[in-house]
């Protein structure tokens, strides 16, 4: 059933009339032309479609758009606050935390959410925390290294990489 749904997308209020049962992934990618979240499996297995909802990682292929009513949705496009790359993004670049890059937005946002919960995560904790995100290119080692680096940096400066528009 069509309804009007309002939420914050990457810091901007967004309103659209849409069947609330539709999955957030497709509404973001098509209706809202925000293509950072990717389709990888459609069943919640791979994590390519990960977005932040109120700062916590969620699989947008499993989330109905009506569930985000009034909430704060951040995709990879919204992670760089005012154009400055987030420490995770920088660390992914420095450590080559990707190859084809298709899993990357899901990896970064999952890591963001994870580090928020476990700010001083160790290597082993990161491996566990990221285990449900798939990467076919085998970039795992670099991804883990990037997250470790970012974890260190974030705990030095800003405990959880907190941003004003991501609560």
């Amino acid at each position: 059933m069509e309804e009007t749904i309002q939420f914050k997308l990457n810091g901007k209020q967004t309103k659209l009339t849409v069947d609330g049962e539709r999955k957030l992934l497709w509404v973001l990618r098509t209706d809202l032309e925000t293509t950072g979240p990717k389709y990888g499996c459609g069943e919640g297995i791979c994590g390519a479609c990960t977005v932040l909802i109120d700062g916590t990682a969620a699989r947008s292929c499993q989330t109905s758009v009506k569930e985000v009513k009034g909430r704060d949705v951040v995709t990879i496009e919204g992670l760089a606050a005012e154009g400055a790359l987030h420490p995770l993004q920088k660390a992914f670049m420095e450590h080559d935390g990707f190859q084809c890059g298709y899993c990357t937005s899901g990896m970064i946002l999952t890591a963001y959410s994870f580090l928020k919960q476990v700010p001083h995560a160790t290597h082993d904790q990161i491996i566990q925390g990221m285990d449900d995100n798939l990467c076919r290119c085998g970039a795992h080692k670099r991804i883990a290294a990037a997250i470790e680096k970012a974890a260190k940096e974030m705990s030095l400066s800003d405990p959880v990489g907190e941003r004003s528009d991501v609560k």
Binding site: G36, F92, E94, Y102
Partner: peptide, 17 residues
């Protein structure tokens, strides 16, 4: 470092879909 880094970490890299 890979030259396609920035577009890939910011979601700007476009794939066919």
């Amino acid at each position: 470092a890979r030259r396609d880094g920035e577009v890939k970490v910011t979601g700007k890299a476009k794939y066919a879909g």
